[in-house]
């Protein structure tokens, strides 16, 4: 039972990787994408900091 479940899980992982590879191949040339990790402070403007989204307290 446990081994069947593990096998199923690993097959699912392999299927995802394969599907991703197919999608990537089909989509042709790609441009870079800035990805922000889930849970991090999001990019973009801040309520007080404006467009920068940060307060620059020192710059040289």
């Amino acid at each position: 039972m446990q081994k069947t479940r593990l096998l199923r899980s690993r097959l699912a992982s392999a299927a995802v990787v394969a599907a991703l590879a197919i999608v990537l191949t089909a989509c042709g040339k790609a441009k870079p994408l800035d990805y922000t990790q889930t849970g991090e402070i999001p990019p973009g403007p801040g309520l007080f900091s404006g467009d920068d989204g940060r307060f620059v307290v020192f710059r040289k």
Partner: peptide, 19 residues
């Protein structure tokens, strides 16, 4: 002037942010 002049490209910068 050293502290406040903003250059086109920051060589040294310290920033604060949060949520």
């Amino acid at each position: 002037t050293d502290k406040l002049v903003a250059s086109g490209e920051d060589n040294i910068a310290l920033s604060l942010s949060g949520q």
